[in-house]
Structures are given as structure tokens and as C-alpha cells.
């Protein structure tokens, strides 16, 4: 019934090469439609490049705060970029694309964590899953140990509190932006933030003592 209208433009846009063309391919789905856009419109590939250059690191680190594992964080953020690319025709503005990326990173981090929790429970049952630190007893390993302590402390928080803290204190997002990214009210953001901050300080107080 709605079949023909379902042919999305994404498939077409995906095949475009990154830098060479000067006008949008047919059906690229930007506002200008079939008439040629004289003014260059941002295509999905370019916006991915731009946002990658500006935000890849911070988004991976954001995810790392949530999932505790760099490899997983890289995958999560990569997936988020791919998803954003597919939605560009609806997002259409870099700001919205960035907001979407953040939201996708948080949601996907949450799913990754759920998935991994099962695996880790098994591992723990089979004889203790010690933290693996690379290197010896030097500064790097102390930094790594500190990182682990912080990530562990984050990990002990309820999911929402962890997410709110990471968005607020690492990405420095406003309450409204956090509410949007998490799909909760600003009141909820406030209460998660204050409870989370108190809990994190308590956990860190104990753990970081040992590392000094």
C-alpha cells in the first residue's frame, strides 16, 4: 500500500563518491529535489567527515565512560555514525546530526553493556575477572589504574546516573540537551545528576585513596 513511497533516498545517497561530485545525485533527498541545487548542499558523506573530524575522539571517550572498554566504544560510535549517515536526509542540519549522534552513542552503549553483562557474569564465575593493566609499575600503568578506578566507579552507578554524569561533566551538555539525548525530563536529569554525583564521589573517595 505504501510500497512505492518507501523507496528511501538513502540507498542512492550512499553510493555517491565522497569528494568528486558537484551536485546532488538524483533522489538524494535534499530540499532542492529534482531541480539542481546551485548552492552546494551538505551531503551525508561530507557531514560524516566533518562530524568525524570534530567529534570522533570525544564520542569514543564518552562511550568509554559508559561501556568501560575502548574497543566496544569504537564500535558503538562507528555504528552511530553509520546510522546518522542513513538518516541524514531527515536530519539535514549538522547540529541535529550531532544531537542524533550523541543520542545514538548513549543508546548503543547501553545495549552493548547489557549484552556484555551476560558474558562477564560467566567470566567472573569462572575464576575472577581481574582488571588487565598493560605495562609495568610506571606512570602509564598508574594512569591506567586510575582510569580503571574511575570507570569502575562509573560502572557501579545505575545506568541513567552514569549517562547523565558523562553527558554533563564530560561532554558539558546543558540540562536540556541531556534531557533530549536521553529522552527524559529535565527534572529527571537534575535528580539523576545529583544522586549520581554523590554516589560517584563516594565510590571514588574509597577507590582513589588506594592509588595515591
Amino acid at each position: 500500500m505504501i510500497g512505492p513511497a518507501c523507496e528511501p533516498p538513502g540507498g542512492v545517497a550512499r553510493r555517491t563518491s565522497v569528494k568528486t561530485y558537484t551536485m546532488p545525485p538524483p533522489g538524494a533527498g535534499h530540499g532542492a529535489g529534482a531541480t539542481m541545487a546551485v548552492q552546494p548542499t551538505l551531503d551525508a558523506d561530507s557531514v560524516v567527515e566533518q562530524l568525524y573530524a570534530a567529534h570522533w575522539r570525544s564520542l569514543v571517550r564518552l562511550s568509554l565512560l559508559l561501556v568501560r572498554d575502548t574497543g566496544t566504544a569504537e564500535e558503538v560510535v562507528q555504528d552511530a555514525f553509520v546510522a546518522m549517515h542513513g538518516r541524514w536526509s531527515r536530519l539535514r542540519e549538522p547540529d541535529k546530526a550531532l544531537a542524533y549522534l550523541r543520542q545514538a552513542v548513549v543508546n548503543r552503549s547501553r545495549s552493548a553493556l547489557r549484552h556484555r553483562a551476560v558474558v562477564e557474569r560467566h567470566a567472573r564465575r569462572e575464576g575472577g575477572l581481574a582488571l588487565v593493566h598493560e605495562g609495568g609499575a610506571d606512570d602509564a600503568s598508574l594512569a591506567a589504574a586510575r582510569r580503571d578506578a574511575v570507570l569502575d566507579a562509573m560502572r557501579r552507578l545505575p545506568t541513567r546516573q552514569r549517562e547523565v554524569l558523562a553527558l554533563r561533566y564530560y561532554l558539558e551538555l546543558s540540562e536540556a540537551e541531556i534531557a533530549e539525548a536521553l529522552g527524559i525530563s529535565s527534572g529527571a536529569v537534575k535528580s539523576h545528576a545529583s544522586r549520581g554525583a554523590a554516589a560517584l564521589r563516594t565510590h571514588l573517595g574509597n577507590d582513589l585513596e588506594d592509588l595515591r
Binding site: 570522533w56 571517550r61 568509554l64 565512560l65 566504544a73 569504537e74 549517515h85 574511575v150 564530560y170 554525583a197
Partner: peptide
């Protein structure tokens, strides 16, 4: 908390992902 979170992850250098995304 800002400092603690930054300290924890800001020295993590993720592997490049742009090619994989492309």
C-alpha cells in the same frame, strides 16, 4: 567530577574509524 572524568579518558586515543564508516 569534570577533572576526574577527563583524566580518566582524555589520554585514550581511539583508533581511526573513518575508513570503516565510509
Amino acid at each position: 567530577l569534570r577533572r576526574v572524568l577527563r583524566d580518566a579518558v582524555d589520554d585514550v586515543e581511539p583508533r581511526p574509524g573513518l575508513d570503516a564508516i565510509r
